[in-house]
Design a protein around this nucleic acid. Structure first.
Ligand SMILES: NC(=O)c1ccc[n+]([C@@H]2O[C@H](COP(=O)([O-])OP(=O)(O)OC[C@H]3O[C@@H](n4cnc5c(N)ncnc54)[C@H](O)[C@@H]3O)[C@@H](O)[C@H]2O)c1
Ligand SMILES: NC(=O)c1ccc[n+]([C@@H]2O[C@H](COP(=O)([O-])OP(=O)(O)OC[C@H]3O[C@@H](n4cnc5c(N)ncnc54)[C@H](O)[C@@H]3O)[C@@H](O)[C@H]2O)c1
Lengths: 221, 221
DNA sequence: ACGCGCTTGTGAACGCGCGCACAAAGTCAG
DNA sequence: CTGACTTTGTGCGCGCGTTCACAAGCGCGT
């Protein structure tokens, strides 16, 4: 890290969580725009492409300290660099996936991560029958090898059954992982310094089910 | 729907979106408790199991109009019935999945939905080579058959490449679907009366990447 | 050089959700 | 029956996030 970057990090205020969650959205829209040859874009147009309010977009970008030009808009290439750097995607980010079942295989074979600086670097499973198998160019290793594949900054992904999730989570934390994405439908407990996010498909469907149910109540068949 | 239910729906206030998102969490914890033979539980204990604040839990449940007993707690079985009904899970909810690729297959083979009143009823794909194939007890049908498999109240799931997502989305809306879950990394536009939720794994990883990057800044190696 | 029109950046108001803390309400023992 | 204990239901204040609306800033045409 250069001294310039350190200074920039100090100067920069803390970025609101809600903003962080939208930066990847902007980044995707910007990549699309760049591919189309667009070099400059207004907050209005970019907000439209990202599906958000333009004032919100401007406020979000202002947190980055990346300045647009009044009367013109934002420089697409500069914004991509700026957001990528802020998200830590400039230097490739290592991802360790635990649980190579139905979901794990789909994730391992997915190309959408690598294209944005994220790459799955290791596949782990407790099933001896799976270790050694080649999936998407990676060799499945035994869960006991976890400490060997974790490097500082690694992100852990849990795709095991719910019953094994807390155990695997503890192993990850023990190996030094401080950022975990959990697909198992369980509440996991982690130390305060570990970031834990979850993706729960059942919950998403149940939320939709709720609204569908509500619609059927106000509009009785 | 009985007149009692209509009356209940009228009496019940509108439930905050944040509460709706937590009901499935409570429901899961309650099912676990019921399986263990617990018949009564305090808000404190249930909140612990669901990983939320107990005051928040009580406020959430108060929206349901389901009353606990002071000094005792909540009746587990009654709460399960009450939440399930509120989420519209009492009568089975039909799910139509479009796009039987890596992710679509994983979803189709997943048993976690059916166990909670949600069941995938139809698999659709545009690839003629896939139509007729049996997956998880269902026959893959051609996307052109969409109108035939959609019933009132169906939930649509999009697991196609991003390039086809808006097209598929329009087809779903055209067929009468008003609740859609999208896995493709694109912004979709839908009429105002359609509920659209998205699950974006890349975004989750990028958010974790951001925090990991931040940690490395304040603790320079 | 200068003003016109466009776009950014942000001040301020609003609404929502969270969590503390407590009164009301019910249980249970004696 | 009474009193002590337990747990619910909620009033209230706080902080975050969203949005409107506008002043400040910049480029461009003339
Ligand atoms: N498949 C889906 O579409 C889907 C959808 C929603 C949620 N999920 C959740 O994602 C998780 C994985 O789902 P799946 O369908 O891939 O399950 P799966 O049973 O197909 O795969 C689980 C894998 O985890 C491995 N495993 C078990 N214990 C382990 C341990 N202690 N350490 C390492 N690996 C271990 C198993 O060997 C297996 O390969 C589950 O928690 C499931 O509830 C899956
Ligand atoms: N695989 C993953 O782990 C993963 C992770 C994150 C996001 N996603 C997203 O989920 C989506 C699906 O991913 P995937 O890996 O399963 O892709 P995939 O290419 O394996 O499967 C896509 C399927 O959609 C079908 N399809 C294409 N156009 C269609 C149309 N117009 N109508 C109906 N079906 C059509 C294809 O025939 C194919 O079977 C993609 O948008 C991807 O970005 C996938």
């Amino acid at each position: 890290m250069t001294t310039t970057e350190i200074a920039a990090a100090r100067r920069r205020e803390v970025i609101p969580e809600a903003t962080v969650a939208r930066l990847p959205l902007y980044l995707r829209a910007l990549h699309t725009l760049a591919d189309e040859g667009t070099s400059t874009i207004s907050s209005e147009a970019l907000a439209e492409a990202a599906g958000v309010n333009s004032a919100k977009l401007r406020k979000d970008l202002s947190h980055l300290g990346s300045y647009g030009t009044r009367g013109v808009g934002y420089d697409v290439a500069h914004l991509i660099t700026s957001i990528s750097h802020e998200l830590g995607l400039s230097r490739r980010c290592s991802v360790v996936l635990v649980g190579v079942g139905n979901l794990g295989r789909a994730l391992a074979g997915y190309g959408g991560f690598a294209s944005r600086g994220l790459a799955i670097d290791a596949l782990l499973d407790a099933d001896p029958a799976l270790t050694g198998e080649q999936i998407a160019g990676l060799t499945v290793r035994h869960i006991d090898d976890l400490p060997e594949v974790v490097v500082p900054g690694s992100i852990g992904v849990i795709a095991t059954p719910a019953s094994a999730a807390q155990l695997v989570c503890d192993l990850l934390v023990g190996a030094g992982v401080t950022s975990i994405l959990n697909f198992a439908p369980t509440v996991l407990s982690v130390p305060a310094d570990v970031d834990l996010r979850k993706v729960d498909l059942s919950i998403e469907l149940q939320i939709l089910s709720f609204h569908e149910h509500r619609k059927s109540l106000v509009t009785p068949a």
